[in-house]
Simulated scan of single mutants.
Amino acid sequence: MVSRVLVLGGRGRIGRGVVTDLLAHSQAEITITGRTNQAAGDLKDYPTERVQFQTLDLAEQQRVTAAIATHDLVVHCAGPFRYRDASVLKACIEHGTHYIDVSDDRNFTRTALSCRAEAQAAGITAVINTGVFPGISNSMARLGIEQLEVPEEVHLSYAVAGSGGAGEAVMQTTFLTLQHPFKVWLQGQWQEVKPYTGREVVEFPEPFGRTGVYWFDMPESFTLAENFPVQTVTVKFGTVPDLYNHLTWLVANWFPGAVIRHPTAIHLLSQVSRMMTAVSDRFSGTGVAMQAEVKGQKDGKPAHYRATFTHSDAATATGLGAGSIAQFILSGDLNQPGVWTVEQAFPTHLFQQAMQIRQITIQQEWR
């Protein structure tokens, strides 16, 4: 039987990346959702025999639930997840529909993981945080950890060129995130850090080169710490060109909190950022680079593993990260009832197979 996949938020850049990946690597019939009938025009680039459009607003819970009930898998791309609850996941559990999402928010992750027992009882596989970071980055960390006898530290560094394809809503969420300190796992204990501090310069592959990265609140900073026996997990993020890093640092460290929290200020900052990146994207592109370093012991000696990943388009990379997991859920190769993060659910051999199929090279080295 042909599987049916519902892609919520399928009109966005990440959603389109997921749809494109599913068309290439599965036989599924795909339903793309949008809030207006005008969105149906986006289907012209897809084969009509496999892709259809459905007008659907996530606020209309009954209609959303009815749509979920007629599909085998839901791919939730309708962020920002800072503003989402777990209602879509719970509807999937209720109707026995598998679920994945591209979430990247700490609180949403906690809420979703709390539904594990219900998902196990329903027999559905639900994998969250399945984009590029988090997502592919988590699998890169697991790949390194599994090669060490005693893993001790995980260091993840991300860089995005220009906007990375993000829209204004994502930029608004980024500015809101800058105002909230968060806890990270350092030297065997939870410590609080402030966003966009702790600058380090990382040598990414070209065309990124030397790029500044800073503390940034991502769910993998705590899920990796909870899922693996390591003493330190650092997750840092930066942008290219470096000017944007310095501007973001100023907002995070110099602007009064009351100003940044005001909706008008957030809206203005995101609009200005969108206009700036609309210009710089023409020169920098919208790619993504990631580096995963794992330190520990191998053969009784200190060992330092490093893996790097680059892609010319961050949104497309997020789509293929989610599409990889969707592919194996649909094929039955990934069948693990419950709610899991990528590093818990996605075994390394399937991750490596997914990257090979998509002609993505993960550069690995020992230092």
Rank of each mutant, 00 (worst) to 15 (best):
L143H: 11
M276N: 09
A59R: 14
Q291K: 12
V154N: 03
I266Q: 12
R142P: 02
V127F: 02
H95A: 13
Q189P: 05
Q364R: 14
L23D: 00
A258Y: 09
A265G: 01
Y83I: 06
F283I: 10
D104E: 09
R261F: 03
E220S: 05
P205K: 14
F346C: 07
A315Q: 14
K44L: 14
G212T: 04
T36Y: 13
F237N: 08
P47W: 12
F309L: 14
I68P: 02
G198K: 06
R358Y: 09
D42H: 11
Q336M: 15
G162N: 08
T130N: 10
D242M: 04
P181E: 09
G257K: 15
E29G: 06
G162K: 10
K194P: 00
V19T: 13
Q179R: 15
T286L: 01
P80T: 03
K301S: 07
G323Y: 03
Q363I: 08
Q179C: 13
G287R: 06
M355T: 12
V7P: 01
V193G: 09
A67E: 13
L334C: 10
Q52R: 15
L22N: 02
G321N: 02
H304W: 07
T97D: 04
A121Y: 00
C77K: 01
A225C: 06
R261L: 07
D42F: 11
T348V: 15
A303P: 00
Y214W: 14
S137N: 08
V213T: 15
T308N: 04
F208D: 08
V201L: 05
P134N: 10
V74R: 03
I100D: 02
T55Q: 15
Y244E: 10
V213N: 07
S3R: 12
A252L: 09
F255R: 12
N253W: 12
L320G: 00
L43A: 07
I260S: 12
H71K: 08
A289S: 10
N138W: 03
H246Q: 12
R142M: 12
L250W: 15
T316Q: 14
A314V: 06
G257R: 15
V230K: 09
T248S: 10
T33W: 13
W215M: 11
D217Q: 14
F53E: 10
I32T: 04
E152P: 05
Q327G: 00
V127M: 04
T211Y: 07
A159I: 11
G323N: 02
I30E: 06
P302L: 00
A141S: 11
V75Y: 01
A345R: 04
T211Q: 14
T316E: 14
V342K: 00
N245C: 04
A112I: 02
F204T: 07
Q61A: 13
A39W: 06
Q52G: 13
V288T: 12
Q189G: 12
G12H: 06
L43Y: 08
I360H: 08
E29C: 05
W340Y: 11
G9S: 07
Y158G: 15
C92H: 07
T286G: 00
G167S: 03
A67D: 08
M275V: 12
G338I: 07
